[in-house]
Nucleic acid binder design. Sequence first.
DNA 1: TAGAGCCTGGACAACGTTGTCAGATCCAGG
DNA 2: CCTGGATCTGACAACGTTGTCCAGGCTCTA
Lengths: 383, 383
Amino acid sequence: MLDATSSYKPMGRRIPTPLNRRIPVDDDRTGHRIVPETIRRSDRAPENRYGNRPTMKDVAARAGVGLKTVSRVVNGEPGVTPETERRVQEAIDALGFRRNDSARVLRKGRTASIGLVLEDLADPFYGPLSRAVEEVARAHGALLINGSSAEDPDREQELALALCARRVDGLVIIPAGDDHRYLEPELKAGVATVFVDRPAGKIDADCVLADNHGGARDGVAHLIAHGHRRIGFIGDMPRIHTAAERLRGYRAAMEDAGIPVEDSWMSLGVTDPERVRRAAEEMLTGPSPVTAIFTGNNRVTVTVIRVLAEQTRPVALVGFDDIELADLLQPGVTVVAQDAASLGRTAAERLFRQLDGTLVTPERIELPTRLITRGSGELAPRG
Amino acid sequence: MLDATSSYKPMGRRIPTPLNRRIPVDDDRTGHRIVPETIRRSDRAPENRYGNRPTMKDVAARAGVGLKTVSRVVNGEPGVTPETERRVQEAIDALGFRRNDSARVLRKGRTASIGLVLEDLADPFYGPLSRAVEEVARAHGALLINGSSAEDPDREQELALALCARRVDGLVIIPAGDDHRYLEPELKAGVATVFVDRPAGKIDADCVLADNHGGARDGVAHLIAHGHRRIGFIGDMPRIHTAAERLRGYRAAMEDAGIPVEDSWMSLGVTDPERVRRAAEEMLTGPSPVTAIFTGNNRVTVTVIRVLAEQTRPVALVGFDDIELADLLQPGVTVVAQDAASLGRTAAERLFRQLDGTLVTPERIELPTRLITRGSGELAPRG
DNA sequence: TAGAGCCTGGACAACGTTGTCAGATCCAGG
DNA sequence: CCTGGATCTGACAACGTTGTCCAGGCTCTA
């Protein structure tokens, strides 16, 4: 579970208890808490716990109306005279009352919030995706809670379950792991769930994916069409679905062209800049040096661009994922672009359709990718 | 308030009520709901509402123990025999029970979640900031709820207050507006609050800012040091604090150098690419054409880079905010960099120190910026 | 003016959890 | 066999909100 590492214990028991202290006031004598004598409900002081926030009861007392009447005003329900409404509103403003949605949620059973578990919010690919999900959520009156799994399956599970404990109405998950059976009780309990970017593992659930295989195949075929035969591939661990699919696309394109792939052309499971750099340099200088490289994701692409900028001979490059400013580099970077915002939007819309009830059967949707030629992928083979 | 635009009404009243239906089962006769005869609490069926999720009561019934014992096991409190614990754990697993944190929150008064209101999650500047806040929150066992204001003060307020209604323990706000008195009741109620990137308006609160004024002044001074005298400035609306400060820094540097600024060199309040492009082109071709441009934020910088790439004469450029791949462009882009992650981390840490109680008096913290020279800012004046 | 029908307002119980407190059980020591 | 003290367990009342239902007061018609 999530664990505090400092002295702030959000749910702890050691918090100095200003929240629990009953403040003794004017003509009230409930300050004593030793004797639990049956406390009449209605003659409590307007002050209460919860950081001293006024409640509907306080508002009601001040406005001289019943509790439910306040609730009606707050929620804009009909059946309140303008005069009464005015009095209530006045009390609300005077006390600075704000409805406690936690209590509301408990009562109503829906939280009007959805959870998003992604890999890293700081990654330029996930920012727009997250924003797209947020926009859809907003259009449906829901808030978005999100968390980064840092590509760690345990952390993904921990996060997803923490969100379920908050009783989010739905979950959008970019999986890090490949076994999601831990979500079965949640699905059964009616938590709407959509997986994005990578499919769910071992459970039947909605997935919205990019056409990783086709995109990679097109990208590599593009290089082949420009005369390359020794083409390198640098990608993430094949454990990750997208990485595996893109690798498969690479292999498919090579096979279609009848080109046997040498092991030294492929580097799998490297993402940190240092190792990507080494991998790229090795395949450029090895016994059978590549004339072109296909990179499996944006981070790899950026590092490889740096390596290629240092080379004397021109090496062609096609990258998966678009990157900002790719058009301004020399040469411009040819990429297989997937639309992150569209992925997020599609997923979120399906999520709310699940909640609507208009969507029942889980589906697997693949969004097309787009090859954007800018120069680096059109270089002729040299060396 | 947040309003649904589709048929999914998270909190609405028209939801078909599977959640409220009491399911009649085996030997239970509480299916009738007409007669409200005093229902004995303990002989309800194990089924209940809330999407049919098991509750502690259900677990207790199945394990043959009391409600509180289940609570103890779930929360790892002491005082439960191993044998009892085993039985409870078994029931938990069998039923797929997951504690309802909404109810917990209601009872305990703390939600172990914090809110982040920023401008646009898709902006590469805010991604890392958000991630940094999340990491700190995670270290403190809290979840992060975030929302984008889209630079709209009303939307900022709507979001912040929605988060307060959820009773987040604290708020990190990147303000869009300049009047935050609406937060006064919340602050008084003990919601920890830190403003980042831009200061709070009309209330006394913690702020973590970058040294916008000093950074801009240094950047412009750098251009002046390289011989430029006709220097353009393109920035956001001065209504936005950061934009105003950077403009002030620009003016200060010019004044320090004794250079009078011409109106045609300044373009304020433009951010969309079209207008930035026009603004840049105008100051490059006007009666007193600039030889260098200082750009007020990353989005403007990117657009101006494109414009400059089309020019025949070299024009110097220094931009506020670092941008990815800036080093690989020709020439490399000289920037005044601020550390987004550090801003977020500092803010979040202060937030939790407020919650700790170790931090009381609001402060205004300015983090230094860093001039990174890469070429574009060192071009000599031409034209 | 009486009765029927509407409108408004309020009492009350639930939602699922945790804190309090008292009761039950067990064992060692007399 | 009893007593005293640990342990362990469970009944109960909150937390702040909303759904249900009923009681008045009002208006309108006959």
